[in-house]
Write a protein that binds this DNA or RNA. Structure first.
Lengths: 222, 222
DNA sequence: ATTTTCATATTGTAAGACAACCTGTCAAGA
DNA sequence: TCTTGACAGGTTGTCTTACAATATGAAAAT
């Protein structure tokens, strides 16, 4: 029983809210975040806001251009590729660990998340897809028992949310993604780390390919 | 010819200086960084300092305890182990990449760094050892051609500096470490990614073992 | 049309102020 | 003696105000 009272600093809440706004797609790559506007939106003072912005900058969720202020970064294809490279090194490990230690409750939550994902795919609801994927990964990461991997993958995943939204809209990608994630879940719930790892590798690889495809398509249309 | 005038923000300089102060061992785990003191040390205002502190907090170089302020974190054995786990996933890759693309100049710089390391080992100069190791890794990371791996390993390495200092002081560890790093360099300069990777794996593994040993020894003495 | 100038908007930085909170000390009461 | 309560000092959390420095875009001049 946890009776701890926890007062959150204004700064911390600001970071959380802005992070949510960015990863949910409310702010989009290229958007400028004018300080005074953000202050009124968040209802906080400029010094507090600026502290929050520095935190987000260090997380790479925003870029602060000197004398121009914060903007939501636009990932280049190369940066995206690098993000997937590193995901490829960490995510399989996380899935393997999760396969060896995830609780029944965590596995059920993953199943719920994937069901929600499938529903969102059917109804072509991009926001819900992202949310469901997010929740699926949250469960994997929190159940993998490795704080650092959890934290690093969390920030990495936050950075690619927008990309995922784009690549999910590619024809057939969402369905494929669902299959791949169900495969991961199957091996996790079976307690098979090796299989979970290979399934994760496949998933990240495919996700990367889809993202790269999304870039090519964008170039063609622009 | 680069004539660019780059004015650094006060905040950015503060972050750099404080990061240097932390990773060089000027501040030690457990130390409190009182804001007003830091302000006078750095010659900046409190808002600017606090922005800098938030950046360092996001890098995990400091921990900001609510209503108590920033302190240099004391790594638990488990946190240390996790840091080495992730190093183990990234560092071999970085070395392999470096083996396939490092320039002659970079390799020479690595050699220089290791020579300096050996000198520092002989004279038992802990600070110089850290500095030389740091410079060795800087060369590997900047020559590996992967920005993200470079950045992530940089922050990871910054977090374990103090640990390395402690484990280097273990009998014989510095010499072993030197051998392992020379092995990595050998394979990088030979352009052999696979061999560089295995050498890196061995090095991280041994470094991890040494660090764990340092923890046990500390427990025994405390 | 190109360059220059200028006004506006925005960021960078500082200073001052005060409430909230933690810590340790000391006295009062059980 | 031990616990509790109160208090003081130090530190952080936050806001307000202020102003200099810089970027942007439009108007003016060549």
């Amino acid at each position: 029983m946890d009776l701890r009272v926890s007062t959150q600093s204004v700064q911390a809440v600001a970071v959380r809210n802005m992070r949510e706004a960015i990863t949910s797609g409310f702010f989009r790559p290229g958007d400028r975040l004018v300080e005074t506007e953000m202050c009124t939106m968040l209802g906080i003072s400029r010094p507090s806001l600026r502290e929050a912005l520095r935190s987000l900058e260090a997380e790479k969720l925003i870029t602060i251009v000197p004398n121009r202020g914060p903007i939501i970064p636009i990932l280049t294809a190369e940066e995206a590729r690098e993000l997937y490279d590193v995901r490829m090194m960490l995510e399989p490990e996380a899935c393997a660990l999760s396969a060896s230690r995830a609780s029944e409750a965590a596995i059920n939550a993953m199943r719920e998340a994937l069901r929600a994902f499938d529903v969102a795919v059917k109804s072509e609801d991009a926001a819900s897809q992202i949310k469901a994927t997010r929740s699926f990964y949250d469960q994997i990461l929190s159940s993998c028992g490795h704080r650092l991997i959890e934290e690093m993958l969390n920030t990495l995943l936050a950075r690619v949310t927008f990309l995922r939204m784009k690549s999910m809209s590619l024809a057939g990608r969402a369905e494929k993604s669902s299959q791949e994630m169900w495969a991961i879940l199957k091996h996790i719930s079976a307690g098979n780390p090796a299989a979970a790892r290979t399934a994760a590798v496949r998933h990240v690889k495919k996700a990367c390919e889809a993202a790269m495809l999304a870039y090519e398509k964008n170039e063609a249309t622009s």
